[in-house]
Design a protein around this nucleic acid. Structure first.
Lengths: 123, 123
DNA sequence: CTGTATCCCCAACGATACTG
DNA sequence: CAGTATCGTTGGGGATACAG
């Protein structure tokens, strides 16, 4: 249940109207969204494959964020015909294709500028 | 009070170790962080100027996010000598200089790809 | 002027059970 | 297989008062 008039909500809308950057943040700011995108880019185009790849994510969260990415036009669902039980696959839209290079740039920047940490990386 | 062993925390750390992109998200993902950066870029290099520019932000939040940006090496504080009461100014580091162009790219991408909304923009 | 201490709110995150 | 319904948890965001 969303409180449309909390200061929180008002500020959120104010920022969306103020700067397009905040739209991008809303798009990819979710905890697992970028990982889902990178995972699909690696060829994991089905629910179970992504779940396997990001093995700490819960069903609920994965479903929620996939839905959000779909609504924002980053991914598209299509049903695999004649499959029982049903198979769904996800594919990037053109919008995603134009976004991913920017994400990779940020990822690289992060690698060069983050403070030292453990040295395990995937993306 | 941070719960170091909640699933929430564990996932957060897992993601930080998995992909540098999540470091970038942590850096600029805060609600007002990008706006603070853009505001400083516009020449608002003091607490009161930024607060005036982003007039819906609270003291507490502004201070918190400035501190975070300082810790991550995006901005540096310096005291203006002989000023009473004390004056502090903020300046970008080289790290910030290398990041800002990427933020502007994302901002532009957002402008081109967001779903239609109200037409007021600042950044 | 430039913050910090305190406390509250609430939306994102997460676990589990269930469904077509 | 691919989700959704429900409900509990967590931590960022926010208001206010106060401090150096």
């Amino acid at each position: 249940m969303k409180k449309e008039n909390s200061t929180n909500s008002l500020n959120e809308r104010y920022l969306l109207n103020t700067c397009d950057f905040n739209y991008v943040l809303q798009l990819i700011g979710g905890r697992w969204k970028s990982q889902i995108i990178f995972s699909i880019a690696h060829g994991n185009n089905r629910f179970s494959l992504i779940k396997q790849d990001l093995d700490n994510i819960s069903d609920q969260v994965l479903g929620r964020q996939l839905r959000s990415l779909e609504i924002e036009g980053i991914i598209e669902k299509s049903e695999i015909p004649f499959s029982i039980p049903k198979g769904i696959q996800y594919n990037f839209t053109e919008k995603a294709d134009s976004l991913i290079p920017l994400l990779r740039e940020l990822c690289q920047w992060g690698g060069q500028h983050k403070r030292p940490l453990d040295p395990i990386k995937i993306c």
